[in-house]
Design a protein around this nucleic acid. Sequence first.
RNA 1: AGGCGUGUAGCUCAGUGGGAGAGCACCGUCCUGACACGGCGGGGGUCGGCGGUUCAAGUCCGCCCACGCCUACCA
Length: 885
Amino acid sequence: MSEELPRTYDAHAAADRYYTEWEARGAFTADPSAPGEPYSIVIPPPNVTGSLHMGHALNNTLQDVLIRYKRMDGYNVLWVPGTDHAGIATQWVVERQLRAQGIERVDLGREEFVKRVWDWKAESGGTIVHQLRKLGVSCDWTRERFTMDDGLSDAVKEVFVRLYEQGLIYRAERLINWDPIGQTALSDLEVEAEEDFQTEIWSFAYPLATPKAGPDGIVVTEIVVATTRPETMLGDTAVAVHPTDPRYQHLIGENVRHPITGREFPIVGDAILVDPEFGTGAVKVTPAHDFNDFEVGKRHDLPFINILNLDGTLNHQGGPFQGLSVADARAAVKARIGELGMDRGSKPHTMALPRSQRSGAVVEPMLSTQWFVHMKPLAGPALAAVEQDFTRFVPKTWENTYFAWMRDIKDWCISRQLWWGHQIPAWYDDHGNVYVARTEAEARARHDLPDDLALRQDEDVLDTWFSSALWPFSTLGWPQKTADLQRYYPTSVLITGFDIIFFWVARMVFSGQHFMGNVPFKDVYIHALVRDSKGEKMSKTKGNVVDPLDMIEKYGTDAFRFTLVAMAAQGRDILWNEERAEGYVRFTNKIWQAFRFAMMHLDAYDPDAPRTFSAYDQWIQVRLGESVRRVRNGLDHYRFNEAASELYQFTWSELCDWYLEFSKGTLYDEDPSADAEARRQGARHTLRLVFDALARLLHPYMPFLSEEIWQRLPGTTGSVMDAAFPVAADYPRDDQALAEVAWMQEAIVALRRIKADMELSPKTELTVRTPDPTQARKHAQALRDLAKVTAIVQGGRDGACATAVVHGAELFIPLEGLVDLAAERSRLDKELAKSDKDIKGLEGRLGNPGFRSKAPDDVVADFEEKLAAARERRAHLATARAALD
RNA sequence: AGGCGUGUAGCUCAGUGGGAGAGCACCGUCCUGACACGGCGGGGGUCGGCGGUUCAAGUCCGCCCACGCCUACCA
């Protein structure tokens, strides 16, 4: 060995050394002017506040696998990394830190606060970016972007202004989701339902302003409604009943008197809102605090009474309850109703409680003036793009999720009452006029405003997802016409989780369609969620979070990555299981040990020396070619686990278990003849060739181990990163070699099994007697090395023998003195039973006339061959069995 | 309520109409000169249930059961 090879693979040393080396020499840096078909990916930008979790690890490993594969395969590759400013989350992190120092955000003022956030970002905002490097990802760090950097901010302003000018952004008073803790509006998507929330539904009576006699003559004095939110009754402006409900029909148009405020309002008939079967069949209507009631209010021209302050306490409309929180007001209203004798009971009730995704606050529907994106016109092209496969979802079934949302799309509330984010590029004068422009100067110039007209910019910022929606083109330089944009848009694939199909994927599609006139990515690969080993979602509160950095520390990056991709089957969640990771650490060790074996023999390798290939050399090369095809097929179709499994099977079960063992006979042969030396050179050549290909095949999954092998392997240059990904056509197809080795493998397994079943020591030397020893003698060396066959004799059954039937050939193993014959009898009985079952199944199939007439000829022929072989085998076994009686 | 998904060996899961697979675990055996982080051999399954299509179904279709997720909710 030219250089001492460590006995074990040091994953950490390799990772540190090679990653630094790669990044330093610009190995990840894209060059738009370089040749090659473009292949580009933009990273799903993690929150700048975030730290790496298992979802990121999976997501980025998958991207890196594709990027490394395509880079090696000759594509002009770009992977853009970056982070998201994560409006609410980041603002809160910094607010919390300030509060720890006794500083409130409002004390600092907006400008100073935003400066503090930038300071924070500069200091600790890059954590996740450094953590990503630990995964070995090869993204182009020279192109790292941030959703709040200048270029992307320009893109945001540009998009806002253009959409406004196109009438696709508007400002209006609408019922929106209000987060009373965050004190900001939220989009529909940022509201999560807390399922199975246990509460009560309370019934109480509204007295009629004028008692009224019904058709039956009985005078009605009140109408009973039910609610889960008693406090909202302070904003009630109607009671609704079904227009055809005989209980209430005659009351429509009558007034009720509010038991607390004394206000009078009507009973209306509304077939859309009211389900007469539910509750009492009468519904209180609070148009300013309920989405359904809002519509009722519009239909019946009702007043909209807002009862809440922005902090979730009751305003002056709350009368005696002004200033109370919603929860306190609820209790107070219930108590008051009781005092008034209007309480008509309550019962337990299960409902979904809307909560703010970020703050956890109970979201209050509230009337508010906000900015919205008019979605219908944008959704059309976005739907068409996916319907016509310009963007393809993988697995395809996710497009249903996309379609469902896009077809039923509602306008998007994009303004947020925060300080951290893209401030809305709209200015107001004192007369309430609004001017939308990229800058204040532009606003003045465009609208010909005098310099002394006071303008103030809208204080709100945009939803973080508004900037994320532009990510695939804003990161490439849009609105500038950059070389990157020309070359790399649309991107090749987006890799992400299903949880942000609405939030992000859908919004990128309509943004790309609208502003670039083309989809942002050709494929969307939706990967699974990483759960814990019991299938539970990982969460801090459950305490079952697995830190990928711990896993890398424990198992090394190569094994960690391999575990993730090996478990990344389409359409199924990953249950993280450390035993699997341990298994793949053993796999890396197996590769390393095999590599050591190869290296032991490669010192003597001379590429120019004459060489001849054995059947084994040929066989492993053929198998390698098949493996290349399967690995490529897996990667080409996002079947990451299939490619991983192929690598594992090939390396362990074919290369290590068989080829290396076969090769020993040749390599350790000390015969000095030129023929023997040529055979040794053939084996050495094969070893080098296989490891050369294996390093390249493994590289996308195991970047560091593959580099370690590549750089040590003789005959390679540079980095494996830059080597060409193997091509199946470079390896031979050779049915003869496959058949030859298949025979050998079957013979060896059969002989080993006889030994094991006879409870013979593995060291026991065997003699094989067979009528035609040609085949066995050709492989005498392998039979000796792998099955301890020391003699091959021509002949038939002679005395007590064990019998193996291999591809129709009988191998007899004389048993004199080796074993009691009972063991062989029972062994043969088992084999016969197995054989009978086999034949019965085949006969059944072939005996079916429909099968012969309708199945393809090659399938029929295939089964006929199988049956013939099985019958022959059975005959031999039966003879062997009879000979023992 | 609607939609989507899952159900295959003890566990975790592959499986693209042609005789049911892998890893781990388990049993037996071997420290053989790459590797005991290993080698060799083995046991283990009415592929959730019922029906249908087909010469042929784990695979396609329908219904049912169980679990999970998403969307929309009932005041």
